[in-house]
Amino acid sequence: MSEAGVIHDIGYQRYTGQRLGRGAALTALYVHGLRAAFGFGRSAKAKIFPWMVAGIMLLVAVILAAVRSQIGEVIFTYVQFDDQMSWLIIFFVAILAPVLMSRDIRSGTLPLYFSRPLRAADYVIAKYAAMVTAVWLLLGVPQLIMFLGAAFTTKDGAQGVWNEVLDLVPGWGYSLLWALLFSGIGLLIASLTGKQAFAAGGIVAVFLLTTPVFGVLTVLPSTTAHQMAGLTSPMTLIAGIGAWLSDGPADMELDIGRFGPVYAIEAVCLITACLLLLLARYRKVASL
Rank of each mutant, 00 (worst) to 15 (best):
M57I: 10
L58I: 07
L58A: 11
L59V: 05
L59E: 07
V60Q: 03
V60R: 06
A61S: 03
A61H: 01
V62T: 05
V62K: 05
V62Y: 14
A65M: 13
A65Y: 08
A66F: 05
V67D: 06
S69M: 03
S69E: 07
G72D: 07
V74M: 05
I75P: 01
F76D: 07
F76Y: 14
T77H: 00
T77P: 00
V79Q: 05
Q80K: 02
D83A: 09
Q84K: 15
Q84M: 14
S86R: 15
S86N: 12
W87T: 04
L88R: 12
I90T: 08
I90N: 10
F92A: 13
F92K: 07
F92Q: 12
V93W: 04
A94P: 05
A94C: 00
I95R: 15
I95Y: 15
I95M: 14
L96M: 11
L96I: 13
A97C: 12
V99S: 13
V99E: 13
M101N: 11
M101W: 02
S102R: 08
S102W: 04
D104A: 06
I105A: 11
I105M: 08
I105C: 07
I105F: 02
S107K: 13
S107T: 13
G108P: 01
G108A: 10
T109Y: 12
T109G: 05
L110F: 07
Y113M: 09
Y113V: 08
Y113N: 05
S115H: 10
R116Y: 07
R116G: 09
P117W: 01
